[in-house]
Amino acid sequence: MPNTVDFPTTPFIRWFVKDNEGLDRGTRLKLLEGPFTSRAALVAAGINTLLVCSVAVALHPTVFFISWLVVDMVIWIIRWFLLQRFVASDKPRFPYATDLSLFFGLLWAAEIGIGTAGCIISQDAVLQVLACTSAVSMTGAAAMRNQGVPRYAFMQILLMDIPMKLATLFQPEPILRVLILQAPMYLIGLWVLLNNLNANLTKAYVAETQSTHSATHDKLTGVLNRLGILNILTASLSAKVNEDKRFCVLCLDLDGFKKINDAYGHAAGDSVLVCFSAMISRVVRKGDAVARIGGDEFIVTMPDSDKASASLIAERIIKNLDEYTDRNPDYRGLGVSIGIAETLPLELSSVEQVLCRADIAMYNAKSAGKNCYRFG
């Protein structure tokens, strides 16, 4: 699956992918991936249109049909080159890559529509049947492949279908003009189909996102859970080995939390946990991660940081918790003990070793009088 797809930047092309704007960015990017995901689909479409164009040139070697064949091949080659940049992750990005890919998709659809119109006007029954059958199959393929961006898919369908229908006005067989009467029902049906397909695909992506979030986040506080933070720690250790970077891990445990739970009930304890999680999330840096790993135990990962940065964050957490207890007299006596483990460049450590060092440092902080931090 491509990992370089991004939203188009030009206003004209961006308008075609403005569907589902109420969704989060990640889900919208997944919906946009349709036009960029399959070499096989592009190859099949290219063979199909190439055959029709070649038959048209063989039967009627006119300037129009020869030009159609050349234009079709040039557009296909450009689209193939652009697709390669998205499917192959080692290919470098270039400016307006998404815009160009979507634009040439529209140009390809218009070229098919105009070529099909020429086949109808030619009055050649073989070409008429072959070209119309091909165009209809291409509209169905566009609907299925680009269901994540229905506005874009429908524009492709219009560019292929309308020239074909209008061409019936310029040939002598009147019965073919029935296609014009049929057009509204056909296009409305495709629009309804596109929106139904998009709704189902969107539901699937949203459900997948929610499932992933539930698996890696704590239900009470909304921060990461044990699985979520372990995934980040594993990735951080891998990045450190590959990039010679250091990072710090903070292990936090609330002091006096059990007394609050016993005195005021679990609802009050849950409120403290939610407030504490929110406070930590506000204090840490943008790239840091916060997790509740159970009870009143928390972990903070700080990539690309040293002891000075970790100390600053630990001091801010302690200070903010003190201010919180000052505002809430019932929670006086609540504190936090913090253990910090720093990993150095070229140091080979497992996730378990790093967490163990941070945990030992946290217990050293408790032994030192609580509501303070120590290094492992």
Rank of each mutant, 00 (worst) to 15 (best):
K18H: 09
K18E: 14
K18L: 12
K18Q: 15
K18N: 15
D19M: 01
D19S: 12
D19C: 04
N20I: 10
N20V: 06
N20M: 13
N20E: 15
N20Q: 11
N20K: 07
E21H: 11
E21M: 13
E21D: 11
G22H: 13
G22L: 14
G22D: 15
G22C: 14
G22Y: 11
G22W: 14
L23Y: 15
L23I: 13
L23G: 09
L23E: 14
L23W: 15
D24W: 13
D24Q: 03
R25A: 12
R25F: 09
G26P: 03
G26S: 15
G26V: 11
T27W: 11
T27R: 05
T27H: 09
T27K: 08
R28Q: 02
R28C: 01
R28I: 10
R28E: 08
R28G: 05
L29I: 15
L29V: 01
L29T: 15
K30C: 09
K30P: 01
K30A: 10
K30D: 09
K30M: 03
L31N: 00
L31M: 04
L31H: 02
L31S: 05
L32C: 08
L32F: 08
L32M: 10
L32D: 13
L32T: 10
L32R: 03
L32G: 14
L32V: 13
E33H: 07
E33K: 10
E33Y: 10
E33D: 12
G34W: 02
G34T: 05
G34N: 07
G34L: 00
G34I: 07
G34R: 10
G34H: 08
P35V: 12
P35S: 07
P35A: 14
P35F: 07
F36L: 00
F36D: 05
F36R: 01
T37C: 07
T37P: 09
T37A: 11
T37V: 11
S38I: 02
R39P: 04
R39M: 09
R39Q: 12
R39C: 05
R39L: 13
R39D: 04
R39G: 04
R39H: 01
A40W: 06
A40N: 00
A40V: 00
A40C: 07
A40E: 06
A41V: 01
A41E: 04
A41P: 00
A41I: 09
A41F: 03
A41K: 06
A41M: 09
L42K: 14
L42E: 08
L42F: 13
V43E: 08
V43F: 13
V43C: 09
V43R: 10
V43H: 11
A44E: 05
A44F: 05
A44P: 02
A44M: 06
A44C: 06
A44T: 05
A45H: 02
A45F: 02
A45K: 06
A45D: 06
A45P: 03
A45N: 09
A45L: 08
A45W: 01
G46L: 06
G46P: 10
G46T: 07
G46S: 02
I47D: 07
I47E: 11
I47W: 11
